[in-house]
Design a protein around this nucleic acid. Structure first.
Lengths: 230, 230
DNA sequence: ATTTTTCTGAGACACTGTATCGCAACAGTA
DNA sequence: TACTGTTGCGATACAGTGTCTCAGAAAAAT
């Protein structure tokens, strides 16, 4: 009975779990954007047949949900924080940073309810920080308002960033020269205020403007938390 | 030379322009969501070969851009408005209403810079309303902050609405019973604040909560416009 | 050792966005 | 009026996509 007489052991299928699948999908998305994520490519990256994935997820949307929740693990701060304001601000900034690391997150942010364990943990931490500072409705309004702000702001920032990258121009130059189109539009004289804004506007740091807008919204929340609602 | 001797005149291709294309695409999207919009279906609706469209747009993304700009025509109010606060509030509410009419807009909002003529007109009107009330940087921050808020809020509202529709439950019941999943998570005791919120939370009207959050943000803007920046 | 159950992956299906390119209808010229 | 150059249309093709079905192989149970 030499080695050659014995057949090769049957090729065991590559081990698999959701963690591995999500990691592969995130890697693909980080490299080529959300559109680079196809079930076939994810499967190929794991040396697995495409249909194998359907044992772990039942739809591509679910894969996206898992990806989003996975990133929320990066958003949840490891150590407890100070007052409610810091909690909200840190959450906003960490979400922004995570989105800069995983730009595809901008395409998914706010697109569907996030009910994964990590996302729930983030929400829990936020609510806990505001607990007792006002009645529940006010607290919810505060959390949602801040969330709406940073979701929208991050999406716009990434959208602009992509546009800049596509033309290879800075934001300001891009506005100035984004195709002849905008210039021509401005030249028509139909948009005087806009023209002035484009002409006189200084190029502002994206992070600074994000932070400033956030502070404004936090100020508003502070005002409402201060005195109980009518 | 009877009629039957003469051949039919050659079938002239159906007349076409961007307006028609965009209208067909919007109709499809209104009926079946963004994913129901395919170049083939748009073309079929216009009795036209799919490739014909490429004379008017050069990519599907461009079609989406045209659709978004078309809806912005509904957002621009026809008559001039009062003070800056009313202008911003009306813009937010009209954007929300337009998105409720065209839910697919939620998927596109904030996803890419909007440079079409109608979107520019909306921006122009907004900037004009704030012109002179503060230095340009502050004005821009105000417009962008409010825009970020309502963009994010609208997206989340539509996301929740779709989730409710998928389960056929009200928002509150949905949170309570969205699969066993959330309930099981809450039952673990790891999310006390969240559990309390779900348990004690009253069902709030979506429009009211949108309006309230908007007012908060507008209050914040008002505070910054009042006194010139440091 | 044999049966039952589970799981896997090859292939197929109905689509998608887009490139290519032959053909037909038009405009301009002789 | 005949011809030719140009344009623009659309059939066909290509390389993908998400997902279904199902024959067969491996694992578990008997």
């Amino acid at each position: 009975m030499t080695v050659w007489d014995r057949p090769e052991p049957p090729t065991r299928p590559a081990p698999l779990d959701r963690e591995r699948i999500v990691a592969a999908a995130i890697a693909l998305a980080d490299e080529g954007g959300l559109e680079a994520v196809s079930l076939r490519k994810v499967a190929a990256r794991l040396d697995v047949g495409p249909m194998r994935l359907y044992g772990y997820i039942s739809t591509k949307e679910e894969l996206f949900d898992l990806m989003v929740d996975e990133v929320h693990a990066e958003i949840l701060p490891e150590e407890p924080l100070g007052d409610w304001r810091e909690v909200l601000r840190v959450r906003a900034h960490r979400t922004r940073q995570a989105t800069l690391r995983h730009e595809w997150l901008a395409d998914l942010l706010g697109g569907r309810p996030t009910l994964g364990p990590n996302a729930l943990a983030v929400t829990e931490a936020t609510l806990a920080a505001l607990d007792g500072l006002a009645d529940l409705d006010t607290v919810m309004r505060a959390v949602e308002t801040v969330g709406a702000y940073f979701t929208g702001a991050i999406r716009r920032e990434i959208a602009n960033l992509r546009a800049e990258r596509a033309t290879g121009l800075s934001k300001r130059d891009w506005q100035r020269a984004s195709g002849p189109h905008v210039m021509r539009m401005l030249a028509t004289g139909r948009f005087p205020a806009l023209a002035k804004a484009v002409h006189d506007g200084t190029e502002v740091d994206a992070e600074a403007s994000f932070a400033t807008g956030l502070d404004w919204v936090l100020d508003a929340v502070a005002a409402k938390l201060a005195r109980p609602p009518a």
